[in-house]
Measured scan of single mutants.
Amino acid sequence: MASQGTKRSYEQMETDGERQNATEIRASVGKMIDGIGRFYIQMCTELKLSDYEGRLIQNSLTIERMVLSAFDERRNKYLEEHPSAGKDPKKTGGPIYKRVDRKWMRELVLYDKEEIRRIWRQANNGDDATAGLTHMMIWHSNLNDTTYQRTRALVRTGMDPRMCSLMQGSTLPRRSGAAGAAVKGVGTMVMELIRMIKRGINDRNFWRGENGRKTRSAYERMCNILKGKFQTAAQRAMMDQVRESRNPGNAEIEDLIFLARSALILRGSVAHKSCLPACVYGPAVASGYDFEKEGYSLVGIDPFKLLQNSQVYSLIRPNENPAHKSQLVWMACNSAAFEDLRVLSFIRGTKVSPRGKLSTRGVQIASNENMDAMESSTLELRSRYWAIRTRSGGNTNQQRASAGQISVQPAFSVQRNLPFDKPTIMAAFTGNTEGRTSDMRAEIIRMMEGAKPEEMSFQGRGVFELSDERAANPIVPSFDMSNEGSYFFGDNAEEYDN
């Protein structure tokens, strides 16, 4: 993207840094990872977990959730003011799984939030270390993106479920800051804005008074975040219109849905970061690795190297396929839920299948599930090659597409044709070009129609051997075009429920 120079890199967003050079960025990201790792080690000690239990991804998720809940100030305040039966607002906890007599047992633990905050700050040299908290939120978000298709949420806001490739980060909490905003897809931002506008339509006082002023500035800020994701002048001009509207209503909703559809071809720039579970960072720190000293990046080879040398386990339900569970977590670790499966298959070195073909449910185990038949197995999170994460949407291309997802959002900077089903997408653009945004709409449609099938995206960008740390010898991959490109292809993934 041309304006790259004016933006802070995501590592800076990730670490609240002012302008830093590459070495400083690597050190501050490393410091953040160190903090998460030290916190995780301490929690495993508190909970008396064995090494194996500490490497269980379900335990990692519970521990991450506990610290996120302990620092969720708004919710904590709300819980104190609106006490609900049987919930102690000062405590947080969740299921911890232990191996007892050759069987997995679930144990519900409860801790004072104050105590968890103390352990977290102690692991982070006394700081609140917001960057580390956001990092864990993005890992949870990436896992949700890989596990669930947001059909219901899309339909509720009037969008087409086939636009799911635009929904990265749709389950990120509001408090995820600049680093969170960077990884949100165009569809996620559109959905947040539509929800806001709908509230304004239904509630006369939404934009009024002292609160209304705050609401208005939040609305304009979200519009600017979305505008910054678009790469064409016409899309940005249309966002200006939406932002400046005196009284946002149905016309703005129409414009936003139009823009979301246009992003299936004229893709937005959305950041991709490899955020790993805390149970990967903990053992690495415990083994003596100093992330701050060595430096770390979320968008280069580092996460690949770390996963190459990590042992992570997962509980497996009786009829689940461990290899499929591994694929789910591998995609989440690489922030690749909406990437082209052919690119992923090449990088991973084994075939990556669409969601609907995987015999696996989510990673988390519900409290009512029976533990008797639970097994555990090693997650295979290694890769054959590594590639640089991208934040450009890439230019655009036609490809055989599917009944489910009709476009992709690249996660890796790797040369390819970008699949999208042009006739299906263009069919949504018939007729409606009147109104105050008509010239911009016409211009956007013209650009979409001009998108050429034979153009290559990320020209000359390749993948790298894991021994090639400096990215000196790019390998331009070859793809098996007979395979499906979309992950949520004609899909039956479970729906995400809060």
Rank of each mutant, 00 (worst) to 15 (best):
K7G: 11
N21Q: 00
K31I: 04
F39K: 07
M43R: 15
Y52P: 00
S60D: 07
R65M: 10
A70Q: 03
E73K: 08
S84D: 02
G86K: 00
K91S: 04
I96F: 06
R102C: 15
R102K: 14
W104K: 07
E107R: 14
E115L: 08
W120M: 08
Q122N: 06
A123R: 02
A123F: 07
A123L: 01
D127G: 04
T130C: 02
L133I: 15
H135Q: 02
M136W: 07
N144P: 13
D145G: 04
D145F: 10
R150A: 13
D160Q: 01
C164G: 06
S165M: 15
M167K: 14
L193N: 13
R195H: 15
R208E: 09
G212I: 05
A218E: 09
Q235A: 04
R236F: 12
M238V: 13
M239W: 05
D240C: 08
R243P: 02
N250F: 02
I253Q: 06
L259G: 14
L266T: 05
P277L: 14
C279A: 08
E294N: 02
L298S: 05
V299E: 13
I301F: 13
D302Y: 03
L306Y: 11
L307V: 04
S310D: 09
S314D: 12
I316T: 14
R317M: 11
Q327L: 06
C333L: 08
N334K: 03
F338C: 09
S345E: 14
R355G: 13
L358K: 11
D372K: 06
M374W: 04
S376M: 12
L379M: 15
L381N: 10
Y385S: 01
A387R: 11
G394Y: 14
T396I: 06
N397E: 02
R400K: 08
Q405W: 10
P423Y: 03
P423L: 02
A428H: 13
T433Q: 01
E434Q: 00
R436Q: 10
E443H: 10
P453S: 15
E454C: 08
S457R: 12
G460L: 05
G460P: 09
E465W: 04
D468Y: 06
A471N: 10
F479E: 10
M481H: 02
F488I: 14
G490N: 11
A493W: 10
D497A: 03
